[in-house]
Nucleic acid binder design. Structure first.
Lengths: 210, 210
DNA sequence: GCATATTATTATACTGAGTATAAATATGGA
DNA sequence: TCCATATTTATACTCAGTATAATAATATGC
């Protein structure tokens, strides 16, 4: 998966990571909209243009996309046979459960992630980016669900299923954090998260059966 | 509902409408991102600040929110008893069917609306605003669904139901327009739209029954 | 090592959305 | 007409994002 990197690539990665880290710290401390790109450049001790060289949008420094489990998702679909939509949908549900069991970062409800979520919630720009990522995820899932079918391009039922799945994932995530904010109990937050997942998935199954 | 307006209010409304019309025409002609607020101000023969006085965001000139059926939605809920979620959900489905039957603007699939959708699709900024409106709608529906219950504040199941409903509405809309783009047949586009609605609503019913 | 091509950083200048403020103008009521 | 309240306007600003060209760092061929 990962080839050994030469020095240039390593330095580039390190630069990128440093900018992202510095920016994320500032965002959490002061709020996304209260931090300018100049602030970040100064704090990271680079020029403003270097920041934009690594991150085309300010929001990208906070949503470090590759960390959010996109590659995981691809793996999830590859792990299972896909000769029917229903199987792929169930594979996805199992993947989510597995991710929780393995305590992958994006499935954990704890003070750290609470601050992350709070920072997103406090900024229209970050919420907008989160919504865009959500829609990209819907498209990705729709394509994945249809890759096992004849047409290869998502039909109406598949697009509906993908939209319902993403809606479920989003709600599970939000409700999990809502419970955590109220209870400060990661266990019950996770339980809520998985309950929403399973409840939503049963709905998708209905949509799948025409 | 509407009180008779004095001249000042009438002038204000007319100014707002004119700016919105001029802007929308330019957006459709050239694309949202190819039109600056200055362009709009010049075309409407007002100062730039007047434009922002009536529309805090550039996107608001294209999404004339009150035209998109928000008040209709409130009416939809008021028309029905709400002593249980299931009834409110069904009321909403009937409202959508009724809106189609009455050929309300936002349920029509025709060349005019095709250009509208194409303009939105061609602009990240407009798509972002559409997503934000979608989330607001989800919250509105969640509150409406829970207003008949004891707690009055949406619980987890209600939030999931609202999210599934919005996902269904969005998919129905997009699939309707996709069919129309392919077939140029408003009838089959509408049929697809309603089919997705009913399919999605059956899913919601499942989520509602725990 | 040295010359050369490639890539990364930087300075500078620009566009365009959105905000703040205060002056000027229009409207409504007495 | 006089006064109060809205509305429009000019001006100046902040900040994200883009374009470009110069400089610095790194990789490669010799």
């Amino acid at each position: 998966m990962s080839t050994p990197l030469d020095r240039r690539s390593r330095k580039r990665l390190a630069m990128r990571q440093n900018i992202s880290d510095v920016a994320s710290r500032l965002f959490v401390e002061r709020g996304f909209d209260q931090v300018t790109v100049d602030d970040i450049a100064v704090a990271a001790d680079v020029s403003r243009m270097t920041v934009f060289n690594h991150f085309p949008r300010k929001e990208d420094m906070f949503f470090d996309l590759d960390e959010l489990g996109r590659e995981d998702l691809h793996q999830a679909f590859e792990q299972f046979d896909k000769d029917g939509d229903l199987q792929a949908v169930e594979a996805l549900r199992l993947f989510v459960h597995q991710a929780v069991a393995e305590r992958r970062p994006y499935t954990r409800f704890m003070p750290g992630s609470e601050k992350f979520v709070a920072t997103v919630m406090a900024s229209e720009a970050l919420k907008a980016r989160a919504r865009a990522i959500r829609d990209e995820l819907t498209a990705t899932i729709a394509v994945a669900l249809s890759s096992g079918t004849d047409s290869r391009v998502p039909d109406t039922s598949t697009n509906l299923a993908a939209a319902l799945i993403t809606a479920t994932l989003t709600t599970a995530f939000l409700e999990g954090h809502r419970v955590f904010r109220l209870s400060h109990d990661g266990e019950s937050a996770t339980a809520t998260f998985l309950a929403v997942i399973d409840q939503g998935w049963r709905s998708v199954a209905v949509a799948q059966n025409l």
